[in-house]
């Protein structure tokens, strides 16, 4: 065998090794990508497995009016209702503050002011929820108690705290979708002699509607799934009821899990019921996220809005 052949054979083997290596790496990368799917499947499977006995109660579980684990009654209807009450109110406040803020940032704000407001909004997302909840307990709850009487720990306090938590999402996504409206639309409107405010109301907002709506629905999903902050300020009565005023203490789905997991008996119906609450939460939030995705498809700047939604989560 000549030296040349030897070299050729060596080179061939080396290249073979390189291509196999490349292939193995690609397979490994694929496996990592699939791990997210695996994790979600495991979460769904284990949550369902643990909650089947409670879910098997059917209507008595979802629409039962009494939640009293010590007496074996597991109706979560009042908790579900109050969860939505707290979420919707929080969202209304967040929308009332967030949408004007987004309009201001997108249309009016001078650069230097935007450079102050924007980082503050981003920081607001990151305040640990337990810290925000503690702040609410020490300041907000006391304030409400002094102003209106009663416990202080109530729906109103939950609204305000959750509004603070969802505000950043509403602001960023709304701003992005206002900015995503094609410039030509705005210029055309201004050229026709419309004032800036008329342009905003008649041209920008209607066209940015889907993005703004998406931010609100996403915010709702976040508000329903939020745990520690809301837990600290809403009171959590022993036996939940459907409240008749916003100054009554309530329970939400998340706070029920946190408060009761420590004394549930493993394997009892109580445990299954708590996991079933987790499943209910999961389903509610999944529906909101699905609606968000549908809502942002189709209109202008869908990609920008989607990117905003993705970044915000």
């Amino acid at each position: 065998m000549s030296a040349l052949e030897l070299v050729r054979e060596f080179k061939f083997k080396f290249e073979m090794r390189e291509t196999t290596k490349e292939k193995i790496i690609e397979k490994l990368l694929l496996a990592s990508a699939l791990s997210s799917i695996l994790i979600v499947f495991f979460i769904i499977a284990f949550m369902l497995k643990e909650s089947i006995p409670a879910l098997a109660l059917g209507w008595n579980f979802i629409f039962g009016m009494t939640w009293c684990p010590t007496h074996g009654q597991f109706g979560i209807f009042p908790i579900v209702v109050t969860t939505f009450m707290v979420g919707i109110g929080a969202l209304a406040i967040a929308a009332a503050i967030g949408i004007p803020t987004a309009i201001f940032l997108a249309e009016f704000s001078p650069r230097w002011l935007r450079n102050i407001i924007k980082p503050c909004v981003e920081m607001l997302v990151g305040i640990p929820s337990i810290v925000l909840g503690f702040f609410g307990l020490k300041v907000l709850v006391v304030f409400i108690r002094d102003l209106f009487g009663g416990y202080g720990e109530c729906i109103l306090a939950g609204w305000i705290i959750l509004a603070i938590m969802t505000l950043p999402h509403v602001i960023s996504i709304s701003e992005d979708s206002i900015r995503a409206v094609p410039k030509g639309y705005k210029e055309a409107s201004l050229a026709l002699g419309a004032t800036q405010l008329q342009t905003i109301r008649r041209v920008l907002l209607p066209n940015a509607r889907s993005g703004i709506l998406a931010s609100l629905i996403l915010g709702m999903g976040n508000a329903v799934g939020e745990t520690m902050a809301v837990l600290m300020v809403i009171g959590n009565p022993e036996i939940p009821w459907i409240p008749s005023s916003i100054l009554e203490p309530v329970r939400v789905l998340t706070s029920t899990i946190v408060l009761e997991y420590s004394y549930m008996v493993w394997g009892s119906m109580h445990q299954h019921a708590l996991f079933a609450i987790g499943v209910v939460l999961f389903v509610i939030v999944a529906i909101f996220n699905l609606v968000t995705t549908v809502a942002i498809k189709g209109r202008f700047g869908a990609t920008t809005a989607i990117k905003g939604v993705i970044e915000e989560r």
Partner: peptide, 28 residues
Amino acid sequence: IITKSVRFFVECLAGIPSIVIGLFGLIF
């Protein structure tokens, strides 16, 4: 289909409330 479902499930995972992940951690 693989990449589409990977993206979908990543979104899914991002949307799961933290307390549900806590419960999953507890049981699993």
